[in-house]
């Protein structure tokens, strides 16, 4: 087996999951970019580079999945907060359902005993 296979596979998996995690982080609340990054960075192995999150947020915004709002901060300049739009909430629900289906499927296959 290619020795880089696992590393490449892990990287691809993380990239795929990161978008789900960004949406999930915003479920039911609004967060500013830095806060999202730090929350996701706290999930072991999920975020390779913290900056990776910002292009995803920018793309989500352009696709109408998230909204932004500038909110005054007592600690300095105004902060840009992100929150899910109805479209984003709907997509998140579908992604979570799909993720649960995949996870359960994998668990089921892994647990399946040969007769």
């Amino acid at each position: 087996m290619d020795p880089d296979f696992l590393a490449n596979w892990t990287t691809q998996m993380r990239k795929g999951l990161l978008e789900l995690c960004v949406l999930a982080a915003l479920k039911g609340r609004r967060l500013y970019g830095y806060d999202i990054v730090k929350r996701l960075a706290g999930v072991g192995g999920l975020v390779m580079g913290e900056g990776t999150v910002y292009p995803i947020l920018s793309r989500f915004k352009k696709e109408g999945l998230v909204d932004t709002a500038l909110v005054e901060s007592p600690e300095g300049p105004a902060r840009k907060y992100y929150q899910l739009t109805p479209k984003g909430r709907l997509l998140l629900a579908r992604m979570l359902a799909a993720w649960a289906e995949v996870r359960d499927g994998i668990d089921h296959v892994a647990a399946e005993q040969l007769p």
Partner: peptide, 8 residues
């Protein structure tokens, strides 16, 4: 994105 990085 540049603005986000600066804020970060």
């Amino acid at each position: 994105i540049e603005a986000d990085i600066r804020e970060h």
